[in-house]
Nucleic acid binder design. Structure first.
Lengths: 191, 191
DNA sequence: GTCTATAGAGGGATAGAC
DNA sequence: GTCTATCCCTCTATAGAC
């Protein structure tokens, strides 16, 4: 009946994820994690020595999640349309159900106030994200599923930027924003 | 030889604008304003009773700026293309020269941690911004300058979201992102 | 592995002198 | 209109008991 000792660590990480992606690095404190969990701040420091360490682990976790999700997407036949829709569904879920922003948003906003470690994670994540979307765009054009007349990198960048913005505007203008923006992305790809 | 007494207030407001739009509400303190100005925190409190008041004034200022800028844009002949380009140039300048985000980004990210006053200003600003862009899109379609087959509101929303995202990705991936994304916006309007 | 206790810094805000 | 001085709070982080 013993609870596995990774449980607390995982629980901390999950709450930190929601808080970091929901409010940004400077928008939450250890208390926001410890109090709801019924533990003390010192317990968090046992698992993660600093706030920077904790948030770095959150970023790493997001990168791992993205890696496994996109690998999953690619298993399903290789249709670019499928891979695009799967990614859009992932983002849509993050915004509407988890009320989370993409971590890139939170890092970019507070860039100048953050530890180097966090910034480095964000740069790596942005490269990984863009590399994935660029491949999807290339594939979509090769397969004549998507229509656009510019570099695939540029189209991928534009799609990612649009989704980042959707997460923000949804908080201010309401959840319907997300589906409208996603619909427009499809539209601009000739879908 | 007396310096007008609005000078300090204006100076505070200008620095607060850069800090708020550059780091977010939770990413700067009164010290970041007072120390470079060579004054004390108490002097700031004389002009703005709380941090919420100060940032609310920053939002109001941005709304006023936007109002006068867009009114200016409309004086120049009424071409939708001109009005779009003028707005894009304004945003481009904010991101690349002033290193500032649109205040909507900063509010959206820390939404749950902000005073009601700031949130209300952000909602109003988002409505004003979208109303302007929607008018430009409608005009552009009427004049056969822009091509898109969805509601003008949706296209405006998508353009705004894309620009919000561009500001973030530029910080992580470099300034060239802004021009690539802006180019893609034109492209997706058939320009 | 979690606790209590506390250090030590920094935050916003106020009172009262000048 | 700006200052000094101070209050009170919150924050991250550490030491040492259990």
């Amino acid at each position: 009946m013993t609870i596995p000792r990774t449980s607390t660590r995982e629980h901390i990480l999950k709450r930190a994820t929601v808080l970091f992606q929901g409010r940004g690095y400077n928008g939450f404190s250890f208390k926001d994690i410890s109090t709801p969990m019924g533990i003390r701040n010192a317990a968090i420091h046992y698992h993660f020595s600093t706030k920077s360490d904790l948030c770095s682990a959150v970023m790493q976790r997001y990168r791992d999640l993205l890696k496994s999700e996109t690998a999953d997407f690619m298993k399903h036949g290789g249709s670019a349309r499928y891979q695009l829709e799967a990614y859009l569904a992932f983002i849509r879920h993050e915004i509407l159900d988890a009320h989370c922003m993409c971590p890139l948003t939170n890092v970019a906003v507070a860039m100048d106030t953050l530890p180097d470690e966090i910034r480095a994670q964000a740069v790596t994540l942005s490269n990984e994200l863009l590399a994935y979307l660029t491949r999807v765009m290339e594939l979509g054009r090769e397969q004549d599923e998507f229509q656009f007349n510019c570099a695939a990198e540029q189209k991928a960048l534009s799609v990612k930027a649009t989704l980042q913005g959707a997460g923000q505007l949804a908080r201010l203008m309401g959840p319907q924003v997300v589906d409208q923006v996603i619909d427009q992305i499809r539209c601009d790809l000739g879908l």
